[in-house]
Each structure stands twice: as C-alpha cells, then as structure tokens.
Design a binder for these strands. Structure first.
Length: 276
DNA sequence: CCGGCCACCTGCGGGC
DNA sequence: TGCCCGCAGGTGGCCG
C-alpha cells in the first residue's frame, strides 16, 4: 500500500496524535500480539522489552517507521496493506494483529489484512545496520540523492528505468504509483533502458522524483483503495495522478490514450505520446 | 553480481 | 447466488 509519502504522513500523524515531542511521549504498559505471523513472526521475546518504555520519537527511513524507545527501536514496515491507528477502547477489528497499550489508556494498533508487513526490534545503535535497513539507498528528499549518483549507479546495469527507480538499493521510497507518475512527468517511457539515459536525463528524473514526493506528502498521500492516515482520513493526491490507474483514459496533456503494461508483474501506466 | 520470477496473504469486483 | 479469475501503494530469496 504505502510508498514514501504515505509512510511519512502516517509518521507525522502518529507524532501528532500521540503527542510525542522533545523525546517525551506515552509509555507502553502492555503489548498484545493477537497474530504473530506477519511477513516474519513478530519477535515475542525482544518486543516484551518495550514494556515500561516511553515512545521518545517516531521517524521514517525509506518506507519503514522507526519508533524510538531510547535504547531500543521498534521498526515497522506496512507491506501492501498495513496501517496504524489509535483507539480509546478495546473495539478491535479483524486483522488487528498487534497492540501497544499506552499509559494514557489508549491503544496503538497495527492492522494488516494481507500480513506482508513487518514488526521488529533492535538496539537503537544497531538499527541502521539491521538486515532490513542496511542495503537501502539514499533518501530522495536528502542531498545524498542527485542525478550524478543515479547516472553513475546505472552505467553497468541492463534493466529498465522503472525497475531501477523502484529498487530500494538505488533510491528509497519510490513504489509502483510514484514510479509511473515520475516517469510521466520526466517524459521517459518506463521500459527505457537505464544505460541509454544521459546525465541530464538523470538530473531531470531526480528532480521530478523529489517534486512529486514532496507534493504527495503535502496532500497526505494517495488513497486508491484502503490507505488511510493515522487519523483515519484519506490522502488527497489521487486527483493529481496523471497516469496511474488511468488506463484507457485521455492524457491530460496531449489527450492521447493512457496505456497499461505489466513490468515485473506490476501494472505500469504511461502516455505513448508524452513519454519517449 | 545481476535480472527475472516466486512466494508470502486477504479481499474485492467482474464475468459467467 | 456462487465460483473462478485477475487484481491490489512491497520485498526477500532463489535460480540460472
């Protein structure tokens, strides 16, 4: 479900609703694993260490949420269908798999119908070298990402540009929706081989990725089906989509018909007229 | 090392 | 109504 803008929105929403500020936040009084089997099982032993600890901060790295408990950090990936919400009661729903009971009486609940998500715990000093984070490329909204970097990284590769920008080893946060959208904005066909793109093209694409992710964050993400913010509200970026989920509809720029094809088993949308 | 494919799950909508 | 199919914001692992 969520790409960088959605995860960032959920992160901001949780900070707001939980009232986490200046390393102060609610304390976990109890943990309830209702169903351990996510992508990997929730580590029962390690996770119990969080009881009595305070949520000091929450941040995002790539599409992961990092809950900072001081010495320990809980990491959460939402997979395709994960979400977090805060409730004042015990009215759990189907697919509520994990609950952090807070000292203010509220429950912080992880919900995930498809269970492709992930919950894990590491010592805070080791979390960036954990198996989930150690291979990740640069953050697209940081200065670490620039056109030259992707140009250099792509010189020896034989793959198409859509797969390349969705590979989290090259740049993090771009998923199936924003890959199609960024390539449309940059006038590049998703099937284009990365080796055939010159430095200027990479600089343009990098800038477009940055812009689109920033705009999507400002609009609180894209809700097509089931993505919601921590508050339960939808994201508003759907109205800004030029190609994704618009197969057969007219391009808003050239009025030609939007095409759909399957790349690496993922639906891919593009305009054959606007994208070369 | 790289590219391509699979598996992991549940739910929904459309066609018959 | 019910069944079957294809489809869904992701990614680690395996194979050639």
């Amino acid at each position: 479900m969520p790409e960088l803008p959605e995860v960032e929105t959920i992160c901001q929403g949780l900070l707001n609703e939980l009232g986490v500020c200046e390393t102060d936040g609610p304390t976990v009084t109890k943990l309830v694993i209702r169903k351990a089997q996510l992508r990997v099982p929730i580590p029962k032993r390690k996770i119990q260490d969080l009881v009595g600890c305070k949520i000091r901060n929450i941040h995002r790295r790539a599409k992961y949420l990092l809950f900072d408990f001081g010495d320990q950090t809980m990491l959460s990936h939402l997979g395709m269908s994960g979400s977090w919400r805060i409730i004042n009661d015990d009215r759990f729903r189907k697919h509520d798999h994990f609950v952090l009971v807070l000292n203010d009486g509220r429950n912080l609940v992880y919900h995930d119908p498809r269970r492709f998500g992930l919950i894990d715990v590491f010592e805070t000093s080791k979390v960036s070298q954990s198996k989930w984070l150690q291979h990740l490329g640069p953050e697209p909204l940081s200065k670490e990402l620039n056109g030259k970097y992707l140009f250099d990284k792509s010189r020896t590769r034989k793959i198409n540009v859509k797969n390349f920008i969705m590979d989290q080893k090259n740049v993090v946060g771009v998923g199936n929706i924003y890959a199609s959208e960024a390539l449309f904005m940059a006038h590049i066909r998703p099937h284009k081989k990365v080796k055939s793109m010159n430095l200027q093209k990479w600089e343009e694409l990098t800038e477009v990725i940055r812009k689109i992710l920033q705009k999507a964050i400002a609009m609180k993400g894209t809700t097509l089906r089931d993505y919601v913010q921590a508050s339960g509200e939808k994201g508003e970026f759907k109205n800004q989509l030029f190609v994704y989920d618009r197969y057969g509809l007219p391009c808003q720029i050239c009025h030609g018909m939007i095409k759909r094809s399957v790349i690496n088993a993922r639906s891919t949308y593009w305009c054959p007229n606007c994208q070369i």
